[in-house]
Amino acid sequence: MIREIHVEKLTEQIREMCIHATHFLSADMDAAMKKAWEDETNPLGKQILGQLQENLEIAGEEMIPICQDTGMAVIFLEIGQEVHFTGGNLEDAINEGVRRGYTEGYLRKSVVGDPLLRENTKDNTPAVIHYSIVPGDKVKITVAPKGFGSENMSRLLMLKPAQGVQGVADAIVETVAQAGPNACPPLVVGVGIGGTFEKAALLAKQALTREVGVPSEKEHIRKLEEELLARINGLGIGPAGLGGAVTALAVNINTYATHIAGLPVAVNLCCHVNRHIVREI
């Protein structure tokens, strides 16, 4: 049975989601930031985490974005295969939602239309859109506006299979260490292992949208997530990179099958303003 969905519905949802995600942390991130404040032992680190708590309160009460870098809009659409979109071009409708969200929501326009010519598009479009077709007649929308302080410190490595889990773990820890203060710790570390070159990067990005505190369903990966979180917090980088016990809030790892000759690893860092919001229509 085909279900028809007018694309204007998507536009309106995405408009709202862009505005909401940039002013309010999701419940999982909010809880993780409160816990970070409780756990931090370095007085300066604790002071900074206290400042970030105050910042979140001001953002929500006065509708000032949590961070001025309201990001490039990354949107995941899981489209049920029974869905038929009507009323216009799907991609245009998504970008219209981003345009309205960023202009009507007083969000920063941080997108340049060409990476070399670098002229600002003035409405934060286009979004980066990832589509997937799934069973059913629903559409699941995830909006994850991504800031570039942390995006710039992310890495993709094509390791050799012989480097194994140790090589993967070292690469992840090294990425966080090199990023230091630049990526605005405390971080959420999104990791993609396996697939191909581009699949690993996509897995890492998707890992950032997984709720903080929800471990991988795979036992060996869950253990790796725990080990890595402990190792990263042992680096002592701390809040804002000024020292402390809390460098990362979570390490989320997603995996996929890969080639006999390869071990791709992508590490997508996200600052403490890890924005992700999900709705289903």
């Binding site: 900074i48 970030l52 001001i58 949590i66 870098d69 302080g149 203060p181």
Partner: peptide, 30 residues
Amino acid sequence: KGKRTKEVADAIVRNGAVYFAAVGGAGALL
């Protein structure tokens, strides 16, 4: 926020200047 190059560090010393960090992601408060 974040690290600077050695060239910047040298120029700070040479000119008696200073580099401050504000807390990244505290834009509403600031």
